[in-house]
Simulated scan of single mutants.
Amino acid sequence: MQLHAAIDEYVLYIEIEKNYSVNTVTSYEYDLQLFLSFLKYHGCSTCLNEITKTQVRRFIQYLLGSLKQKPRSVNRKISSLKSFAKYCLRYLTNDFTHGIESPKTDDKLPVYMTLTDLKQLFDYLERSQSRFSMRNELMFKLLATTGIRRSELVSLTWEQVDLVNETIRIDGKGKKERILPLHPHLMPLLASYKASLRSYQIYPTQPVFLNKNRKALDPRGLQVIFKDVLKKAGLPPTRFSLHHLRHTFATLMLQQNRENVDLRTLQELLGHKSITSTQVYTHVEYEQKKKAIDSFRIF
């Protein structure tokens, strides 16, 4: 069986039978097509039975060296290949990814805004008088108070918003659904924003957030808006990204609200599949550790 045919079959499998999200399917397909292109470019056989571990290791070397990809990005591609190889065992007796190890990643702490930074951002959003000031204020306050991903924000429709119960329903990674309560301070803003739209724009299946052409925002467009808002708010646009708002939510939630939030609760709010992903935010305990050391009356 040829590799390209196996990839096509696998993509259909994860899309139809596994019911993976569109973003996940697209990512897996991209990773596998990149591996196929690598084999063709280097004159290697693309017959499924002839793929070797050495070729996989050369592919990883190519990603890290020639393409200068970061270990985290390379690890995702290795994960895609391993999942694909496992599927292909119905045709093969040899798993060409067995024993392949992922490169070590730098365990850097997530970048986040301080409470002062966030208040500075909110202050600008509340003072802004631009055409889209209400939309922007709602978008970025929603990201900062719920921790949803930017892809989840731009795909949000009005049928997912429950003004009565003050919740939003999020379709997260792997099509896993979660219900998030909205902060009480957001409710008047959300109601005003909805009232400012035309009747056809608040139809249940319509996107909540629109661009200047009255069409759904895309993640790239949202990022451009955020960078512009940061600059006008007096914050460094090169320092923060939209994903950092998610880090900010998680970090400040643990810093400012520890009596009401534990890691399990935070895991549910963020929609993490594994609590291991959530544990990175325990770095906030450093502040408590520092206070403990500083207050140690030993000298």
Rank of each mutant, 00 (worst) to 15 (best):
N23Q: 04
S102G: 11
T93I: 07
E17Q: 14
E101P: 02
E101A: 09
I100C: 05
T52E: 01
R90V: 12
S80Q: 07
F35V: 05
G99Y: 04
Y28E: 02
Y30C: 15
S66N: 14
D95M: 03
V25I: 15
Q55D: 11
L63N: 06
Q120W: 02
T105I: 11
K104G: 08
E29M: 12
L36E: 13
I100L: 10
C47D: 13
G99W: 06
Y30W: 14
C88K: 07
L32E: 09
P110H: 01
H42K: 12
E17N: 09
Q69T: 04
R72M: 03
L118N: 05
Y30E: 15
L64M: 13
L109K: 02
F96V: 05
H42D: 14
E29T: 10
Y13P: 02
I16E: 11
S102W: 08
R58T: 08
N19W: 03
K70G: 03
K18D: 00
P71N: 03
T105H: 08
D117Q: 10
Q33L: 12
I16M: 11
L118K: 10
K119F: 11
A85T: 00
C44Y: 15
Y91T: 05
L121P: 02
D117S: 09
S79Y: 05
D117F: 10
S21F: 02
T114G: 11
L64Q: 10
T114D: 12
K68Q: 15
S79E: 04
K86D: 10
R72A: 14
L89V: 07
V111M: 10
E29F: 06
F96I: 02
D31P: 09
K104C: 01
L92V: 07
F38A: 03
S80K: 08
M113F: 06
Y13H: 11
T97Y: 08
L63V: 00
K77T: 06
S80C: 13
C47V: 13
Y41D: 15
T97N: 05
L34C: 11
L89N: 09
K53Q: 15
K104V: 00
V56D: 08
P110V: 09
D123S: 13
Y87Q: 06
L109S: 04
T46R: 04
L63H: 04
T24D: 05
S37L: 12
L64T: 05
K40D: 09
R90K: 14
S80L: 13
T24A: 04
F84S: 01
V74C: 01
V22R: 12
N94A: 12
Q33C: 12
N19K: 10
T52N: 00
Q69F: 14
Y41T: 15
I14V: 07
L89I: 07
S80E: 09
N75H: 00
R76P: 08
I60K: 03
Q120V: 00
D123I: 06
Q120N: 07
S37N: 14
F96N: 01
C88S: 13
G65T: 00
E50W: 06
E17V: 05
V74H: 03
K53D: 10
L121A: 02
I51K: 02
T97H: 07
N23A: 07
E50A: 09
A85C: 10
I78C: 05
S45H: 04
C44I: 09
H42E: 14
F38I: 00
A85M: 05
L48P: 07
Q55W: 09
F84P: 00
L34T: 08
F38W: 05
F96W: 07
K68F: 09
R90S: 10
T24I: 02
K119R: 14
P71E: 06
L121F: 06
I14E: 02
